[in-house]
Simulated scan of single mutants.
Amino acid sequence: MQPIAWNDLQDFLAVARTGQIARAAVLLGVDATTVGRRLRRLEARLGRTLFEQTREGQVLTEAGETLLAQVEQMASAAERIGEGADPPGALTGTLRVSVSEGFGIWLVAQHLESFAAVHPALTIDLVANSGFLSPSRREADVAVLLARPRHGPVVASKLSDYALHLYAARSLVERDGVPTLATLGKRHRLVGYIPDLLYAPELRYLHEIDSALAPTLRSSSINAQARLIAAGAGVGVLPHFIGGHDESLLRVIPDVAITRGFWLVTHRDTRQLRRVRAFRHWLTQLIDQQRDRLLPACNTVP
Rank of each mutant, 00 (worst) to 15 (best):
H119A: 01
V235M: 02
H267V: 05
P201W: 10
A75K: 11
S100I: 06
D141Q: 11
L273A: 03
P87A: 09
L126N: 03
R96V: 09
D176L: 03
Q2V: 11
G36P: 05
L159T: 01
I229C: 10
S220K: 12
I209G: 04
R80M: 12
S220L: 08
R148C: 15
L295W: 10
R23T: 14
L249T: 06
E79Y: 14
N129L: 13
G243L: 02
V99Q: 00
Q58R: 14
H245W: 15
T183R: 01
V35F: 14
H267F: 12
A226Q: 02
K158Y: 07
R175D: 05
E202S: 13
T270P: 04
E208R: 15
G93P: 02
D176E: 11
A156S: 15
W106I: 03
L249V: 06
G57R: 14
P179I: 06
N7G: 15
V30R: 15
S220M: 11
L91W: 05
A143G: 11
S220C: 13
R275E: 04
V144W: 02
L126M: 09
W263G: 05
E247Y: 07
L112N: 08
S211E: 13
H111T: 12
V252N: 01
A230S: 12
L68H: 09
F115Y: 09
A78Y: 08
R23V: 13
V256D: 05
P120H: 13
L283P: 02
L145N: 04
T180D: 06
L197V: 08
A77Q: 13
A117Q: 15
R48N: 08
H207L: 09
G236F: 07
L250G: 00
G152V: 05
I229K: 04
A169W: 00
G177C: 05
V276G: 02
K186L: 07
V144D: 06
K186Q: 12
S157I: 10
R204E: 13
R150K: 13
R96G: 10
P88M: 11
C298D: 06
T216P: 04
Y205M: 11
S100F: 03
F132I: 10
T49Y: 08
L217Q: 07
Y167M: 02
S221R: 07
A212I: 14
A156T: 10
P120Q: 14
M74V: 13
